[in-house]
Write a protein that binds this DNA or RNA. Sequence first.
RNA 1: GGCGGGGUAGCUCAGUUGGUUAGAGCGCAGGACUCAUAAGCCUGAGGUCAGUGGUUCGAUCCCACUUCCCGCUACCA
Length: 513
Amino acid sequence: MNKKFYITTPIYYPSAKPHMGHAYSSIIADFFARFKKIDGHEVHFLTGTDEHGLKIQRSAEKQGVDTLEFCNKISQTFRDLSKTLNLTNTDFIRTTEKRHKKTVQHLWNELENNDDIYLSKYTGWYSVSDEAFYNEDEIEEVDGNKIAISSKSNVEWIEEESYFFRLSKWQKPLLNYYETHPNFIGPETRKNEVISFVKSGLKDLSVSRKSFSWGIKVPNNKNHIIYVWLDALTNYLSALNYPDTNDELFKNFWPASVHLIGKDILRFHAIYWPAFLLAAKIELPSRIYGHGWILSGEEKMSKSKGNILDPIEIINQYGLDPLRYYLIKEVSFGNDGNISQEKLEDCINSDLANNFGNLCQRVTTFAIKNCESKIPKRIEFQKEDLEILDKYKNNLDNIRKKIDNQNINFYIDYIVNSLFEANKYFNDQEPWKKKDNPLRLNTIVFTGLEIVRKISFMLYPIIPNSSLKALKIFNLTEKDINFSSIENNEFLAKDSEINEIDILFKKIEKKND
RNA sequence: GGCGGGGUAGCUCAGUUGGUUAGAGCGCAGGACUCAUAAGCCUGAGGUCAGUGGUUCGAUCCCACUUCCCGCUACCA
């Protein structure tokens, strides 16, 4: 039986068009999905859109369009983004789909039957203009009017009937779970935040709303709709056809291997979600990972600052793979990352064009000119050849381990180092001086080609299109890529034709200022 | 305010369970080569590892204080 891997992105809230943060989450998820795929796993990779809630309803009203039509349109832009980013997602779920409603209502019933949901009243100081509730200590009285201290807007006392989830009951089980499953939340600092939050005490959670209608109805009370988070989180299950636990998808892929999310929604994933699952007696996902934000030059991107880097525009200008590579390489995974167009250009020139692209080119061209355009047949490895080739062999398990710990930076640093070594190898061996020694020349060329092939395999999860382009040198295609085969030093078919390839990455001409 | 993380080369960041000359990439300067996208390779410049005090034979790494930055501190997601 194949090993299974189930990874999810957040489902995106389509109240606005996709931005770099969405692109980042998706690209990273795709990286893991592709890596696991070439490492022999059966992969389920889910992304989608979260389409309920007051904000969506209002946005649609504002534009005077039907709410579902509004969602259809914006959800499509996210579907398009998946294409643009070349994601290998195996499904795309929308919370407005029937399959999802069915699952959410089933889960609701489970929770209610287990006495984890009860009907009560929600009370609090509400500001209509802020759309927010405030605590007693966040308001003050001025001229007999209650106002919110932070925004100075009027607040009114609201009492609304609401269903509650007994979150408080799960405080101890959650803490216990965190302790017995130290890898449940990553990275470590986020885990600490979550734990300290839970330790500070959990109140029951209001899980229904009466004030608006755009959502999934509470099964036995049509006046209420289900709180968006209980709704949204459930997508990870509905995409596997839960509650049909005999369904192949569910049997194969639950519990999820990784829910990849941004740090801003960690609480919902690391506290509410596991609490819901515990209450419904469903197994918990293996890992929740909250990555950082993508910032533009130290600041959050904002229109007024004019520092927005729109993923689509960047891709149109530089291409997809450079963006994928840059985001994965330059952002220290787990932390916030500062990106800039200038750094992106530097990265393209030094890493992709000069280092990887040029390596492919120099080795290939040399082989074409000196080995009759064929992969050398007669070779005899020497110490220095095996030294560089065997290094890969000895690192595969280590790389797998690092990937399972989401240590993306290790992975890409390993590749970059390999590129330096490869270029150095070719330099030191000086095959252009070995024209009177065909055996040696052939061996060096073969070794060079093997290295290009190994590195191209490793680069596939990061820059799939470029990797495949490079592999055309050897007539290799996607189905040939196999991570384990990196330890094979004689993978390439000897005596087979070598193809000339176009330049992989064009250098960016930088402006002089 | 409380809890947590952090301040390391011009820039982005690693690292040290305390031990002789503190690392990488980019950028910068010089050199040898020429297969290659004037790419690659070699060498070098550049840091009082935020500050002060303490523990220690010895601290960038441990402790205390100071200072600056950031995150979390429940129902907008």
